[in-house]
């Protein structure tokens, strides 16, 4: 089961080139059964696999916050997927609030989204284009930025903002050049 709540449903119908909704503050957690990522054909989605206590992901949160805010201005729906089993929605929402990350929160304890999009790490960013009902093209899957060269090796500042660039390209309908730099962070436990 995965669970959906947030500033959410208003965004779902908006395509990439539609008028961008202003950032809305998350409503109180409202679990919704949702078997698939809600999106309309042609819409671009930014999906970030994240975790409440990965120090690498948390260190990148300020840049990620700006990337997500900018994506929403471009009309992109943003999602925060928490794959950790046993995590409560309240805890996930608290994390998103503490780090001021805006996006629809999805809990994925059974790793449906993890498996489907082959996510391996938190934080890992995906840019998807919706092709039709529950059909997506993966435009990008990789790191948020290069703040970390590898686990334990942190730079002063990121010099490349790969997820942000990928979102911009996808919104312009242009391909994101390969290879997509792999995410550095905390490995997701596949087996629940």
């Amino acid at each position: 089961m995965w669970v959906l709540f947030g500033p959410v449903l208003a965004l779902v119908v908006l395509g990439c080139r539609g008028p961008g909704p202003g950032p809305s503050s998350p409503a109180s957690p409202r679990p919704v059964e949702a078997p698939q990522l809600p999106a309309e054909p042609g819409e671009v989605l930014a999906v970030v696999f994240t975790s409440v206590d990965c120090p690498i992901g948390n260190a990148m949160a300020p840049q990620l916050r700006r990337t997500l805010a900018r994506a929403r201005e471009q009309g992109v729906s943003t999602f925060l997927v928490y794959p950790r089993s046993g995590l409560t929605l309240d805890r996930a929402a608290e994390h998103a609030r503490d780090y001021r990350l805006e996006g629809t929160i999805l809990l994925d304890p059974d790793k449906h989204l993890v498996e489907r999009f082959d996510a391996r790490i938190t934080p890992e960013g995906l840019v998807l284009e919706c092709l039709g009902p529950d059909r997506f093209q993966v435009c990008y899957r990789g790191r948020i930025n290069d703040l970390y060269a590898s686990i334990g090796n942190r730079r002063e500042q990121p010099s490349r903002h790969d997820l942000r660039e990928a979102i911009t390209l996808a919104c312009q309908g242009r391909p994101v050049p390969e290879p997509h730099p792999p995410a550095v962070g905390c490995r997701i436990e596949r087996v629940p």
Binding site: D53, C54, P55, N58, R84, S85, G86, I151, G152, C186, R187, I188, E189, R190
Partner: peptide, 26 residues
């Protein structure tokens, strides 16, 4: 450190990550 490691339950949801980090001697 960023998380508590004091029971099997603390390890299970991140065991391959811990194995990677311990295996790499980080």
């Amino acid at each position: 450190a960023p998380f508590v490691l004091a029971s099997p339950e603390d390890f299970r949801p991140r065991r391959s990550f811990v194995a990677e980090v311990v295996g790499n001697r980080l």
